[in-house]
Amino acid sequence: MKDISSQKSKAIRFREIKEKTIKYALLMCAFTSVLAVIIITMFIFWEGMPLFGSVNPIEFLLNPRWEPSDAVNPSYGILAFIIGSVYVTALALLLGIPIGIACAIFLAEIAKGPVAKVLRRAVEILAGIPSVVYGLFGYQTICIFVRESFGGTGYSVLSAAIVLAIMILPTIINIGEISIRAVPGEYREGSLAVGATHWQTIVRVLLPAARSGIIAGIVLGTGRAIGETMAVLMVAGNSTPIPFLVTDSTRTLTMNIVTDMSYASGLHRVALFTTSIVLFVFIMILNSVIQFLTRKSRMQGA
C-alpha cells in the first residue's frame, strides 16, 4: 500500500516537474520578443554610439554635409536625410490619410456584402505585396508618371510619397475600420434618434469617438513609412542634398544605411549605425504614441 502510494507520488512529482519545465520553457518563448527588442536596441546603440567620440551629436544631426569618404575633411551630417525622411513621410501621409480614412468609414458604415468583401480583400492584398515589388512598380510606373506630369527626373520626393501612401493605406484603413466599429452602438443610435443624418452621425459622433484609434493607425502608418527602405530606395533618386521641391530627388535615413553599407568601413560604417539609432529613436517614439493611443481607445471602448 505504502509502496503504491510512493510510486504514485513519484509519478505525480515527475508530472509536476514536467509541467513546471514546460511552463518555464513557454515563458522563455514568450520572452524571446522581449529579449529581441533589448538585444536589437543594445546592438544598434553599441555599434552606433562610438561615432560621438569624434563627431559632435549636434553636428551629426544638424549638418547637411554628408561626405564620409572625403580623405581630407570627412563630414558626417545627416540633416539632409532627416529632412528627406520627414518630407517624404509627411507628403505620403497627406496623400494617404484622406483616402485611408474615407475607405475606413466606407467599410465600417456604408459598404455591405460583396462590395465590402472586395475592398477588404483588396486592402489585405495591398498589405501583402512585398516592398521591393512596390519599388519596381514605382520605378517603372510612378516615376515615369511624375516625370511626365511634374517634370524633373521622376526619381523624386513625390514618387516616393505616392508609393508610400499606397503602402500605408492598408494600415490606416484596417485600424480605422476597427476603431470606428468599436464605437458603442448606443452612440450611433442616440445620434440618429435625435434626428441627425447618417453623415452627421459619422462626422460628429463616430469619428470623434474613434479618434484615438484612427490616430493610432495613422501613427502606425507613419512608422511604416519612415522605416520603409527598398521601395523608397528604388524611386527617390538617392541624392544627398536637401530636397526643396517635390520633384527633387532625395535620400532618406533608411536609404543612407543601405546605400553605404556595402562598402563603408571605419568611422563611416559607425556613422551608418548612428543613422539607424536616429531612425530607431523616431520609431520608438511613434511606437510609444501608438501604445498610449491604443490603450486610451481600448479604455474608451470598454
Partner: peptide
C-alpha cells in the same frame, strides 16, 4: 514594439 521595428533595423541587427 518588435512588430513596429522597420525591416532595415532587423537587417542591421
Amino acid at each position: 514594439t518588435l512588430a513596429g521595428i522597420p525591416s532595415i533595423i532587423y537587417g542591421l541587427f
